[in-house]
Design a protein around this nucleic acid. Structure first.
Ligand SMILES: Nc1ccn([C@H]2C[C@H](O)[C@@H](COP(=O)(O)OP(=O)(O)OP(=O)(O)O)O2)c(=O)n1
Ligand SMILES: [Mg+2]
Ligand SMILES: [Mg+2]
Ligand SMILES: [Mg+2]
Length: 924
DNA sequence: ATCCTCCCCTAC
DNA sequence: TAAGGTAGGGGAGGAT
């Protein structure tokens, strides 16, 4: 039963008492749930799988429990594959309308009384008597595409008080709601005090600090470094018994995750909000574009989700309670939770996030009761509930947790896990996100059962070796990942992609300095240094408007460039030197900046325990060694830490910086470039290489040839950087960003047909003055050539663009993936045809056996593969392409889906031909 | 083969 | 108004 608030009493009675009572009840409920041995009741709901929508009486928690006891299942989220019954009291949520409009057989929609009455009578009653009177659907509602968003004043929407049947309590419920809203309001205004006025980066000298303090993503992103402290402390006091691994025996993996973590913590501070929809978010505005961080399970019944704009959330659920962030509390709760886990499972815990961990429970006597123990301990120490899943690997245990939520636990055997997996949407697989889902959808793959149909080779063709294999395994419930209790850090970085609006380059530079300061802090905290510095920039796309999201980055091009140093650094100034070099080579008008990030890789803890040890020798190692020995510089001074002797990329870059190969393109003076030069000089970036004159001649002479070359490059770099006054750079500062909409181009040898995809790609090798080129030393020639090819490397494009505010409109560039095995190009048409025939035969077999679903899936895959094949053939084998298309068109198949697929393939091919050969078409 | 850079994608 | 960070996995394509 929904623990009832002691009406009218709770003002006098202490919160403490109330909380104690609350906890006691939740505890009981938890124990019941946890101990359901599914033998307790008759199983009248066997085969039933319910999803609750909006408010109901009994509450969803009770329904969940009833299902657990009586053989049914409870689904937190609606899934056509799994849900047999939707339970709701009121009429049409947009969700329901959508469901009813689906072509496939929809689940039954019943009132909650169906459950209570069935329970009373001890048998499953016919659903019809408890159906919803359908045609209270809106007038004008069509069934075809009638997805009508409910208007905010839609009377039919479930209201806060509507779920409670007892009329006498109505006013009490209202009071409770008002109290909850009041507390939320108070909490929001009290934390707004420290804020002040809204400011973009250029307006607020203290922007970065303010920003990071208020950023939830910063909090969850930097959480790991905070938990590391705790781990160190704990591990010092702990003897870690080794995990017995009896050969190949089955592992037991437990996954523990706090239920709606931030929202749960918020409910601790606002107990009246329990049982009511609540989110954590910065803004309470009805049109706000602030993101929901966490939604409690009541709010989720209304479709409210993390990451949703608050305006959208409030539209779905107008009575939503909005609580502000309480980062300190999240930290406290998180630490409490981890202390419990570290103590109960020494040496077996892999922290995943502030609210989530894996535990290797292999050979613990009873993982299920361990899960109960850890959950009840978490609850009694924090007042927040956790859920747990147990299975034989990390994948299945995580999925089990999801099924157990909220406040539940579940053990699944491999077989059960796999059976369940098959009904899951592919997007529910960990590792499959938005983009992969789009790709799979395009292949007609919707649920994991579809994915299982796809041969590994096809997945690898489409997604790459590892990713393909991963998908192949995961959809079968196979996951070989080990619980990693001491992950090694490989990079440290900081970035800001919100509120970045500059008018002057100097502001941008200052911003980078702040970032470097932040990184120095974190490097030192982690006692690490690194020797590769990466600068990542977001640049407003040309013509992009101010984004929908306030001070957001909007539509951007992402740029990144890295510089590898001779030795490891952790000093902000030194980091900044590298950043300035990098900025110098990527530079564009500061008012187009929308995001700046800096990160450091190739970390070294100074103990010889390199996260990424330099593997190959070459100059880098040599110089480091020399530096350590103090041999390279006169007077035996150790080399300053940050000479950038140029990684390969920067060396190339610097060749370009010299400007010679690019002469046809006029370099451009950017506003403030002189400032940068001065700054760079004053910071000493180029100077930190010892002057050539100071380098011990003997040592230099003794260098192996290739090392000498690299050293020369380093000095070349310095010279280039010191003379950018008249002519700063070229490539990095394209005057006009031409045709940002250009289509991706096949990496082809057909030189005459190239379509430049970016302004900087206009620099073709043929534009390099041959006389100048001939003058260059051999190794420089090499570099120039490399640079040339490098710069016109195929631009990898995102396959699909998200359709939020920042999506690029109309991006349809379908196919830059798939990979040229090369064999196709060489293969004669005849043998290719044989392969095609057998492939098609296999596909049609599904059809003739009546497996329409399988047929559809395989046809989708076939289409996708053909897209890729066309991509390959259009490059160098147009004749084969023509034959292929003719063959497809002539093949007589009496199935519409096939005809559609062929039509798509042909269109796609013609499109490719058109873009590769200036609007040409293949005659078929 | 393996490394490296410059991306993209995913999860929290 | 709003606080779109952080780290790892991995792919493509070029260099070695
Ligand atoms: N896009 C996201 C995802 C998560 N979080 C924060 C808020 C969450 O409370 C916390 C933990 O993330 P989970 O994915 O575990 O989500 P919840 O704990 O909120 O819900 P669940 O019960 O599904 O675990 O991280 C966030 O701010 N933004
Ligand atoms: Mg959670
Ligand atoms: Mg989590
Ligand atoms: Mg997923």
């Amino acid at each position: 039963m929904e623990p009832s608030v002691p009406m009218g009493k709770h003002h006098g009675g202490s919160h403490r008492e109330y909380m104690a009572e609350k906890k006691r009840k939740l505890q009981i409920q938890y124990e019941r749930t946890a101990s359901v041995a599914q033998t307790e009741g008759n199983e009248i709901f066997r085969g039933v799988s319910v999803h609750v929508n909006g408010y109901t009486e009994p509450s969803w928690e009770e329904i969940k429990h009833i299902m657990a006891v009586h053989g049914g299942r409870f689904e937190n989220y609606y899934s056509r594959e799994r849900v047999t019954h939707i339970v709701c009291t009121h009429l049409p949520e947009s969700k329901i309308i959508q469901i009813l409009n689906e072509r496939k057989p929809a689940p039954m929609v019943v009132k909650p009384e169906w459950i209570t009455e069935s329970l009373k009578q001890g048998k499953k009653l016919p659903e019809v008597e408890f159906g919803l009177p359908r045609l209270q659907l809106q007038p004008g509602q069509t069934t075809l595409d009638g997805f009508r968003r409910p208007t905010p004043n839609d009377e039919k929407r479930p209201k806060m008080d509507s779920g409670k049947a007892v009329a006498a309590k109505t006013s009490g419920v209202d009071e409770s709601l008002n109290e909850a809203l009041r507390v939320a309001e108070e909490a929001r205004s009290s934390c707004a005090v420290l804020g002040g006025r809204p400011r973009s980066a250029s307006h607020d000298p203290n922007f970065m600090d303010t920003y990071f303090k208020a950023s939830r993503l910063h909090f969850i992103g930097t959480w790991k470094e905070r938990i590391e402290n705790l781990m160190i402390k704990v591990s010092q006091e702990q003897v870690v018994p080794p995990i017995r691994q009896d050969g190949h025996f089955t592992r037991a993996i437990m996954h523990v995750d706090m239920d709606c973590f931030f929202a749960s913590v918020a409910m601790l501070k606002n107990p009246h909000a329990r049982g009511k929809p609540l989110v954590v978010c910065h803004s309470n505005s009805n049109q706000g574009r602030a993101e929901v961080s966490s939604a409690n399970y009541e709010a989720r019944k209304f479709g409210v989700r993390a990451n949703m704009f608050i305006g959208e959330a409030k539209r779905l659920c107008p009575q939503l309670i909005v609580m502000p962030y309480q980062f300190d509390l999240y930290q406290d709760v998180s630490e409490a939770v981890y202390l419990i886990m570290f103590e109960m499972f020494p040496g077996r815990v892999q922290p995943v996030s502030c609210d989530e961990a894996y535990i290797d429970a292999t050979n613990l006597d009873d993982p299920i009761s361990w899960a109960s123990k850890v959950r009840s301990e978490i609850f009694s120490r924090t007042g927040c509930t956790a859920s747990a899943g147990i299975s034989c690997n990390m994948l299945l245990s995580k999925i089990a947790t999801g099924r157990a939520k909220p406040n539940g636990q579940l053990f699944v055997s491999f077989e059960e896990g796999v059976a369940f997996l098959k009904s899951m949407k592919v997007a529910e697989l960990p590792g499959v996100g938005w983009s992969t889902r789009q790709k799979l959808t395009a292949m007609n793959i919707d649920i994991c059962a579809d994915l299982v149909e796809v041969p590994k080779s096809v997945l690898q063709q489409e997604f790459g070796q590892k990713t393909g294999e991963l998908l192949f395994n995961h959809c079968r419930g196979i996951d070989g990942r080990k619980v990693e209790t001491q992950p090694v850090r490989k990079s440290i970085g900081a970035e800001v992609n919100w509120g970045v609006r500059f008018n002057h380059e100097a502001e941008a530079i200052k911003f980078m300095e702040d970032l470097c300061g932040e990184i120095q802090k974190r490097l030192r905290h982690a006692k690490l240094k690194g020797r590769c510095v990466t600068l990542k920039l977001k640049r407003k796309q040309q013509g992009a408007n101010e984004p929908y999201k306030f001070l957001g980055h909007g539509k951007c091009d992402n740029l990144s460039k890295s510089l590898t140093l001779a030795s490891c650094i952790d000093d902000a100034k030194e980091l900044m030197n590298s950043c300035l070099s990098l900025w110098q080579s990527m530079r564009f008008p500061a008012n187009e900046l929308r995001g700046v990030g800096i990160s450091v890789t190739r970390l070294d803890n100074g103990q010889g325990m390199c996260a990424s040890p330099y593997k190959n020798g070459s100059i880098t190692r040599y110089l480091v060694e020399q530096a350590e020995a103090g041999a390279l510089v006169e007077g035996k001074q150790p080399l300053p830490g940050n000479r950038d002797i140029g990684g390969r990329s920067s060396a190339k870059e610097n060749i370009q910086l010299a400007g010679k190969p690019n002469q046809p393109l006029k370099p451009e003076q950017s506003p403030g470039s002189k400032d940068v030069c001065r700054k760079m000089c004053s910071l000493g970036s180029p100077e930190t290489l010892p002057p050539l004159s100071q380098v011990d001649k003997e040592v230099l002479h003794a260098l192996p040839e290739e090392l000498k070359v690299e050293l020369e490059r380093a000095y070349q770099l310095r010279m280039n950087l010191q003379q950018p006054r008249g002519k700063p750079t070229r490539k990095s500062f394209p005057k006009a960003r031409k045709s940002p909409r250009a289509k991706p181009r096949s990496p082809s040898q057909t030189a005459g047909l190239e379509i430049p995809t970016r302004a900087e790609d206009c620099v073709t090798f043929t534009q390099v003055d041959p006389a100048v080129f001939a003058e260059l030393p051999k190794h420089i020639q090499r570099e120039v050539k490399a640079t040339y090819t490098h710069s016109r490397r195929v631009i990898r494009t995102r396959l699909f663009e998200r359709n939020r505010d920042d999506a690029v409109e109309g991006v349809d560039q379908g196919t830059q993936r798939g990979s040229p095995s090369g064999s196709l190009l060489a293969q004669p048409w005849d043998s290719f045809k044989t392969e095609l025939e057998s492939r098609c035969e296999a596909i049609f077999e599904h059809l003739s056996e009546g497996h329409v679903d399988k047929y559809t899936v395989h046809l989708g895959i076939f289409q996708q593969v053909m897209f890729d094949v066309c991509g390959q053939l259009v490059v160098g084998n147009l004749e084969t392409l023509r034959l292929l298309l003719r063959w497809l068109l002539r093949k007589t198949v009496h199935d519409d889906a096939w005809k559609v697929a062929v039509d798509q393939i042909v269109r796609h091919a013609q499109h490719l031909v058109g873009s590769s050969y200036a609007g040409g078409t293949l005659r078929l």
